[in-house]
Computed example of a mutant assay.
Amino acid sequence: MTDVAAAWAEALQRFDWLPSWGQSLILLGGAVSVALIVHALGVALVRRVVKQGDVFWRSLVSRTRRPARLALVLLAISLVSPLLPLREELAALLRQGLHIGMVITIGWGSLVALDIAAALHLRKYRIDIADNLIARKHLTQVRILRRAAATLIIVFTIAFALMTISGFRQWGVSLLAAGGAAGIIVGLALQPLLTNLIAGIQIALTQPIRIDDAVIVENEWGQIEEITATYVVVRLWDLRRMVLPLTWFIQNPFQNWTRDSATLIGSVFFYLDYAAPIEAMREKLEAIVRPSPLWDGDVMVLQVTDLRERVVEVRCLASARNGGDAFDLRCAIREQMIAWLKAEHPEALPRDRITVAAQPVP
């Protein structure tokens, strides 16, 4: 390294006739040019090595190209900075800029490394298959934790960058340690963000919800479409979107229809006359459900579940692979059973009976 610096100093002596700012531009331009050439040669070499390799490694080289280029440029400038004929104030300003640039480069590289690690983990799982419970579990965990970690990396990068500036060092310390008046102000300003960040970590670890879960929230049925660092997007059955903060799912009760399995049991209730043919209805239910592609082959039951003053309550149960199939199967049972009762057993439909007492003829 000393030999390189000596070579740069000897080369710079040939431009003694230039003013100091001109010498500085030549030295900085040469350093940056060398850094860019080294970066280009390195990227070309690495691309040639991984050209026939895995897609992940090719994307890794592509995504780390810019952070690596910035790091090499900053390194080159820092190596030649002691040789620059600058006043002390300008030299201090340059060192300050190099420190901030290096902190930003490290933060940038950390974010890229985080995205690559998340992508590498998710490549093991497929969500476009029927039995995707494990895949949705890992997808939810990785997305929430990645966003939480990215938020922390950004906060720490800003804090360390502020700590390199003497006039703002206390702000950086306060942002990290939450101490002093500045720390209190920052803490109050970031309270909603931090609350949702902690809630996101809870959801990622305990997983009360996952991507593509079927849920009922605020008396609306929908599916979890997106989980961000601060909110959850629920795609409702009519294609509306409900946006809820992460803390809502920690603090409020809700229904998750696919918590452990996507399989659901759909129920259909009929209120019929006491003359309803129960055994014939069981046979009709089997005739409706068994050939249906919506039925998963597990549960199919018809029972009288209640007796009321004028009607009997008949409940039909049929299972399906997911909530959407269960809803469609319930509708099919209602439509076909009612049509069959009207056509074959109209006496089973609810009706009021009136008894007329005969009066003796005087």
Rank of each mutant, 00 (worst) to 15 (best):
V217C: 10
L205C: 08
L93E: 09
R143Q: 11
M102A: 13
D296Q: 02
R334K: 15
S110N: 10
A31C: 01
M102P: 00
Q13A: 15
D306S: 10
N196R: 06
G266A: 14
L98P: 04
W21C: 01
V233Q: 14
G180H: 07
T258Q: 07
V361Q: 10
E347L: 08
P253R: 11
L175N: 09
L272E: 00
R210D: 02
F160S: 01
A40I: 03
A31S: 11
H39R: 06
L83N: 01
R87Y: 06
S319Y: 04
D128Q: 05
L36G: 00
V112G: 04
W17V: 12
E286G: 02
W57C: 04
W8M: 12
R334F: 14
L197G: 11
Y271S: 12
V142S: 07
L139W: 13
T258V: 00
G172V: 06
A92V: 10
W257K: 09
R47S: 12
W237G: 07
W237D: 07
S267L: 13
M163L: 10
A9F: 07
H345R: 12
L329H: 05
L120R: 15
V73H: 08
V312K: 02
G180Q: 10
L94A: 07
K137S: 15
R123A: 08
A135R: 09
G107C: 03
L98T: 07
T206F: 07
A148K: 00
S33L: 15
R310S: 13
V215M: 04
W108V: 09
A31K: 02
W17E: 14
V217I: 05
T247A: 08
A11C: 08
L83D: 08
S62I: 03
N196G: 02
D306T: 00
I134E: 11
R241W: 00
T355R: 13
L152D: 05
D238E: 01
H138N: 09
V73A: 11
L27P: 01
Q52D: 15
G323T: 03
A343N: 03
L193Q: 11
Y125P: 08
W171T: 09
T258H: 04
C331H: 15
A68W: 11
L79W: 12
L193Y: 15
A6N: 11
K284G: 05
R240F: 08
S33D: 05
E89Y: 00
L36F: 02
A148S: 12
A177W: 10
T247G: 02
I165H: 03
G53H: 09
R321H: 14
A40T: 14
I250D: 03
G42K: 03
E344P: 06
